[in-house]
Design a protein around this nucleic acid. Sequence first.
DNA 1: CATATAAGTCTCAAAAAGAGACCAGCACTA
DNA 2: TAGTGCTGGTCTCTTTTTGAGACTTATATG
Lengths: 136, 136
Amino acid sequence: MDSKVVSLRSKLEIYKAGSGGGNIADCPVRDVIQGISNKWSSLLMMALAEKPYRFGELRRLVPDISQRMLTQTLHDLQRDGYVHRKVFPTKPPSVEYSLTDLGRSMFRPLHQLLQWAELNHGAVRAARTAFDAADA
Amino acid sequence: MDSKVVSLRSKLEIYKAGSGGGNIADCPVRDVIQGISNKWSSLLMMALAEKPYRFGELRRLVPDISQRMLTQTLHDLQRDGYVHRKVFPTKPPSVEYSLTDLGRSMFRPLHQLLQWAELNHGAVRAARTAFDAADA
DNA sequence: CATATAAGTCTCAAAAAGAGACCAGCACTA
DNA sequence: TAGTGCTGGTCTCTTTTTGAGACTTATATG
């Protein structure tokens, strides 16, 4: 029990700020987490964990993402090494997005969280309803 | 292998839209995930998983969060049932925030993801560097 | 020639986040 | 008794992020 607290504390220190200059970018956990805690990242990771998709397929799969946000989120996921972008020299050229090994590795814990969300959706909604009723 | 694909596909359908009207709020996973994929949520969950904290303590623990965002993130976490807010009638009154059972339950998978982030920070940074070098 | 499809980019409006002043109530101090 | 600091906030303003939707380039099809 105590060891757990200690381990969490040490992680918090790491999370809080870099050991040296206190620069935000130097904090490992925040640096990584902020890249995937966007509105669309986990959704696109989920889609690509199923199978590779083309740009237009993703757009149709997730109708309420704007094209701009789809482009940008895929770009960011690619930059962080989770997604591979492959261009097929067809006419017109098509682009296929797929998870990299790093992406699949990251998706494992992410998937746990998504499963938790699915299982506990009811509890969260109930908490919200209770909270909103309380301040009325 | 195949069964995994099928299970992911079904989850994606759930994630994508509610079964009925296609309303975003009806999608269980997105509804829950969006509540915790904010800039500060995972950081505050991490802090409170260690031990309960008072408002001012959290502010000092996370110096680069604005007071406004601290208030709002704690409020949202409380509304979703992850955090309990207890007011002590001291002078001046102090407020203690702690995780609820639901919050501790959610923190388990979240913690897995945070650990992944800590372990793989180097790989992500390397991917970013490589990506940025490629388009130069 | 008009239209469609691919994967985007560009512009502008709306929403969210951040900075920092301000607030009320009380204790301590000069 | 006025000043200062502590508590946990709110209010306003500015900057950043997100969203909606028109526009692009190149090719194929009717």
